[in-house]
């Protein structure tokens, strides 16, 4: 079963709906027993970094997530705030992140080369793939929907799957082993998002 982690941060239903249309059943849960049995995990989320981390802590699900992801290597996809929480920390808050990936979350500058930079970055953006990765299979000229004021910067460039630009270049997707993160919202990105979710679920051949 695919588990979508429900931790009171935003529009988790959209991911569920899109998986359903793709023919994959998933469950919205924060129950450790259900998470334990998951074949795939999805960590969605919008909102503030500290709020998201506190919710994960309060629900007491970080140990089971770490067991699944770090020990059992269960594939996990972080979306937007979910991807940011996998990093070491964020300029948005004081809480430490999950630290699964060597990356920091930074705030967009107010201006670039003397020109003001509009923030949050809201809208569709193209991505520049940095390596051929299974997540981007069968995606030609993909574009995705972004909504964020903070961006991910990977310390290990090997982990960067693609970059995007909003005044400056930032890392719009990363991968380290079974851990995937995307800054954009596949669940709100039409066929591009559908294909990406399908690639994630099918990456080892079967759901």
């Amino acid at each position: 079963m695919i588990c979508i982690i429900n931790y009171d941060t935003g529009n988790v239903g959209a991911v569920h709906n899109m998986l359903h249309v793709l023919g994959f059943e998933s469950t919205l849960t924060n129950n450790p027993d259900e998470i334990e049995k998951a074949s795939h995990l999805i960590l969605p989320g919008v909102g503030a970094f500290d709020h998201g981390m506190k919710k994960l802590i309060d629900l007491g699900i970080i140990p089971v997530l770490e067991k699944k992801v770090l020990q059992q290597k269960t594939p996990i996809l972080g979306i937007c705030l979910g991807a940011q929480l996998m990093c070491k920390g964020s300029e948005e808050g004081q809480q430490a992140g999950l630290g699964w990936i060597d990356a920091k979350v930074k705030r967009f500058p107010l201006s670039v080369d003397g020109n003001k930079l509009v923030s949050p970055n809201i809208g569709w953006n193209e991505v520049i793939p940095k390596k051929p990765e299974i997540l981007f299979n069968e995606l030609e000229m993909p574009r995705f929907y972004f909504v964020h004021s903070y961006f991910i910067e990977c310390e290990n460039r090997e982990n960067v799957l693609c970059e995007s630009e909003h005044g400056i270049k930032f890392d719009s997707a990363f991968q380290k082993g079974c851990i995937f993160g995307v800054q954009f919202h596949p669940e709100k990105s039409h066929r591009f998002g559908k294909q990406l979710l399908k690639n994630f679920i099918m990456k080892d051949g079967a759901a």
Partner: peptide, 8 residues
């Protein structure tokens, strides 16, 4: 309505 929407 929103369940039909794979767009913002």
């Amino acid at each position: 309505i929103a369940s039909e929407c794979f767009m913002p």
